Simulated assay, not measured.
Amino acid sequence: MFEILKKIESFGFEAYIVGGYVRDYLLGKISNDIDICTNATPLQIKEIFPQAKTPEKDFQSVILKLDKYNYEITSYRQDISYQNNRQPATYKLVKTLEEDLKRRDFTINTLCLDSNGNIIDLFNAQEDLSNKVIKTVRDPFLSCEEDILRVLRAIRFSTVLDFELDVNLMKAIQEKGYLLKNLSYDRKKEELNKIFKSNNILKGIKLLIKLKLDPILELNNLNKVIITNDSLGIWSQLNVLDIYPFSRQDKKDILLINKLVSNKKIDLETIYYYGLRLCLIAGQILNISDVLEMNEKLVIKSFKDIEIDLNKYYFEDKKWIKELCQLLEIKIINGDLKNDYQEIDKFVKDYLKTKNML
């Protein structure tokens, strides 16, 4: 990655790795996504790296994929005005690194690495990193109003990194939080997902409630949520299927989790038909702790595991095949029938006799 910086510098430009990669590097975390800022324009960057691509939303940047790393190379810029409390409406290219860093959200995201691996810290970010505090680069009230996503990003960083929010930032969030209504549900969900997937999720939930953001985000059951290891378990308790965007599969899974929870029990049949993942989620909500142990007791995981080939039997009416398959599954799962070819063969023949098909 330093070779990228050196190559840009060889053309007479400045270049620094900036933001999350540097922050995570100092925290001992590894990332394959690297942001680079430079005083070169996108056109000049593409002359240096012809394979670079221009993103759909062009804020004077290009995308470069090289080896195992994804680089976003952005020209120094100053954001002059914002639209919809979210995106820069007007901006201009600037000449210095400091001018560029002033537009960024939090001090811990202003840290830079030069081509020799030296840390560049213009906003005392290392001190904030050491003190484990999330602080905006500029006035927090103005910063949150310009880009309201910063409210959720602040809570996400506080949750994931286990940092505290700066006192003035908390006040700004409380005052400007209502502007989250202008943020798309996709972006809200993206940040909330990162909070819900964190091992420190409880901190994030407490912050959302403390800062009174739960009603603004339409998470009205947030104070009643039971923590689960899977974020889908959190979403299943919030009753927001008609509000937030979910994939078809996630919607189906949430409905199944809710059905499992309403049934208030998980047994071998449940695990077989609903799958281990959904049963583990429902089990956490229901405080049923032996789901994994029950799963280990399952003799079969799917119908393919049953020692039988139904093609060798004659079914006058195909509607009985589904009933027979389910009977075999239930009896084997519950231990009423061994998963043994001869025993199953006898069971199937007896079943066919009852249907006058043998």
Results as ranks from 00 to 15, higher is better:
L161Y: 15
L179E: 11
K135E: 09
K194R: 12
L161D: 14
L183M: 15
I155P: 02
E145R: 15
K188Y: 10
F157D: 00
T136L: 03
I134W: 01
V151E: 08
K194S: 05
R138K: 10
R138Y: 03
E191M: 11
Y178S: 14
R153Y: 06
R153E: 08
E146M: 11
E191F: 09
R187H: 15
C144Y: 01
Q174W: 03
M170G: 15
N168A: 06
N168M: 09
V137I: 07
P140E: 04
P140I: 01
F163C: 00
K194E: 09
N193T: 01
L152I: 03
D186M: 12
A154Y: 00
R150Q: 00
L149G: 04
E146I: 05
T136Q: 06
E175M: 07
F157I: 04
R153G: 00
I195V: 13
L192M: 14
R150F: 02
S184M: 07
V167K: 14
L165C: 03
K176V: 06
S143G: 04
I155T: 05
E175N: 12
Y178K: 14
S158T: 00
V160H: 01
N168T: 05
M170I: 12
P140C: 04
R156D: 00
R138Q: 13
Y185F: 15
L149C: 09
N168G: 02
D139I: 02
I148M: 10
D166V: 02
L192C: 13
D128Q: 05
